[in-house]
């Protein structure tokens, strides 16, 4: 089961995947941007400012999904002690940090023209800031703690504690009064976004996911080389 992430035949597959993504990335990017910025209609209420949704929503989803992934890998690693999982979660972390930041920044840029404010401390936005802090703690624990096994332990613990925050972010808009609107796409799959706007949203999500895959693969390769380099005499 864990052979897939075992770094022995992995370089070959990483190279292949990177080349494949590079070959289709810009085509999909241009299609997605055309739909998001030109072809999709403005909103009946928000006008053209609704286009910010096409970067804001995928960023927030990726930020949440990355942390969930890191936390699940941390749990698996804590139980079964699989070393490679640490490398994977370490490779996901910068992606999650980037997209959580982007979700907050683009959200602020969306809030000003629609709500009339750059920033409010409502439950959704505050819990996103807490997620950002957890990402920073996770990355710092790897940067600051010299001893690798100790750094892994601390970062795993941070990720498992931070997991509690994920459902809080997801349901904050349902549990409490917030300025942020409720989720448009419900857990049962129904959506209150018109199909002509859902298409560019999904295209942008695809583009950003492909980008994430690129970064993840490159970062994972870097981590493997770093480990091998450290143990070069003992391989």
């Amino acid at each position: 089961m864990f052979n897939l992430i075992n770094p022995s035949r992995i370089f070959y597959w990483i190279e292949k995947l990177i080349n494949f993504i590079n070959s289709i990335f810009f085509v999909i990017l241009i299609i997605a941007l055309t739909f998001a910025l030109i072809l999709s209609p403005p909103d009946y209420l928000q006008g053209d400012s609704v286009r910010i949704m096409y970067v804001h929503v995928p960023s927030a989803w990726i930020g949440l999904a990355s942390f969930t992934g890191i936390a699940l890998f941390s749990i698996l690693n804590f139980i079964f002690k699989i070393k490679n999982l640490n490398l994977v979660s370490k490779s996901i972390a910068p992606i999650g940090l980037l997209f959580t930041c982007l979700a907050i920044i683009t959200g602020s840029l969306w809030g000003q023209p629609t709500w009339g404010t750059w920033w409010v401390w409502d439950a959704r936005i505050t819990s996103m800031v807490v997620l950002l802090i957890f990402y920073i703690l996770f990355i710092l624990s790897h940067k600051l703690i010299e001893q690798e096994s100790k750094a892994n332990k601390v970062s795993n613990l941070i990720a498992i504690i931070g997991l509690i925050n994920i459902p809080i972010i997801r349901f904050s808009v349902d549990w409490w009064n917030t300025l942020h609107q409720p989720s448009s796409i419900k857990l049962d799959g129904t959506s209150s976004i018109h199909p002509s706007m859902l298409l560019p949203l999904m295209l942008m999500l695809l583009v950003l996911l492909l980008y994430c895959a690129l970064i993840l693969l490159m970062k994972y390769k870097t981590e493997i080389i770093r480990i091998k380099k450290k143990n070069i005499k003992r391989i």
Binding site: P42, R51, I52, L102, I105, L109, W110
Partner: peptide
């Protein structure tokens, strides 16, 4: 111009 929203839309795409 995006009917006046151009600044916000273009800036958020550019930052991303």
């Amino acid at each position: 111009s995006m009917n006046g929203y151009g600044f916000f839309v273009w800036l958020s795409f550019a930052i991303t």
